[in-house]
């Protein structure tokens, strides 16, 4: 592994008195696909949002492609152009058509000309299999289609890294497959990906590494077969048993 594409060093993040991240160290190599799993409130989404500085870390450093994102003097807009992000709620721009969703950021942020932006938009819509929806408005698309457009929009900016924040959690179960197929293809093409997800099948089959987080720290980090197939930590085992077989869970006493 050469220089890591994403590097997180001693990352802390607090919201008021609530310490969500308590010292995270993580490296993701070029072309690597890392799935971050863990119970809700474990800080995995916050970690992801710290990578492109949507959340400002309280302490610690984040590097993406060798640039320190957390440097106060960094041109954060320039750094973010290299980092694509896909949200749970898609966040397409509802007042623009699918094509305009892809072309407007290219034109305004990258200053591409009209023809170039349109070409890139068409290429990326084809990549996610939605060329025929080019002129539709987001509200007329299904959740799965909207999420694929959101992926295409991020890809049209030519990112070196893609962040996925629970990309399938807001989807109807039968629509999850299409989105995962696009992501799998992207992984195969060599994109560096950091994916917060609950899709264990995807993590097992596509990820190079799986990171299990709980209580703001990385509990386990390793190959999918190891972390999911043969977890060493009790907390990982507990979480996975609940996730893989939710019907078998027992009622537990809430500990505060």
């Amino acid at each position: 592994m050469s220089r890591p594409e994403i590097q997180v060093k001693g990352l802390h993040k607090s919201f008021g008195d609530n310490e969500v991240l308590r010292g995270i160290d993580l490296e993701i190599g070029q072309g690597e696909v890392v799935c971050v799993i863990g119970p809700s409130g474990s800080g995995k989404s916050t970690l992801l949002r710290c990578v492109n500085l949507l959340e400002e870390p309280t302490k610690g450093q984040v590097f993406v492609g060798g640039t320190e994102v957390t440097d106060p003097d960094v041109d954060i807009d320039a750094v973010r152009r290299r980092i694509g992000m896909v949200f749970q709620q898609f966040n397409l721009f509802p007042h623009l058509t699918v094509t305009e969703n892809l072309t407007l950021p290219q034109r305004r942020v990258l200053r591409r000309d009209k023809a170039g932006a349109a070409r890139t938009a068409a290429e990326n819509l084809e990549r996610v299999g939605l060329s025929e929806k080019a002129d539709a408005y987001p509200s007329s698309l299904s959740g799965g289609q909207q999420q694929r457009v959101a992926i295409a929009r991020a890809l049209a900016m030519g990112p070196e890294v893609m962040l996925f924040d629970e990309p399938t959690s807001a989807l109807d179960p039968e629509l999850v497959g299409d989105v995962l197929a696009v992501m799998r293809r992207l992984a195969r093409e060599g994109m560096t990906m950091m994916v917060v997800t609950h899709e264990m099948t995807f993590a097992r089959e596509v990820a190079d590494r799986v990171v299990f987080m709980d209580g703001g720290v990385v509990v386990e980090d390793g190959a999918p077969a190891q972390v999911i197939g043969n977890p060493q930590n009790e907390r990982t085992r507990h979480f996975l048993s609940r996730l893989l077989d939710p019907a078998m869970a027992e009622v537990e006493e809430e500990k505060s």
Binding site: L54, D77, P94, V109, A154
Partner: peptide
């Protein structure tokens, strides 16, 4: 989420306001 999406695409706050938020 609209502002977050715009910022994550590399829009500056002002440009996101003008291109994305105000039209909506």
């Amino acid at each position: 989420g609209q502002m977050e999406a715009a910022r994550s695409l590399g829009f500056s706050p002002a440009r996101a306001m003008v291109s994305i938020i105000v039209p909506q």
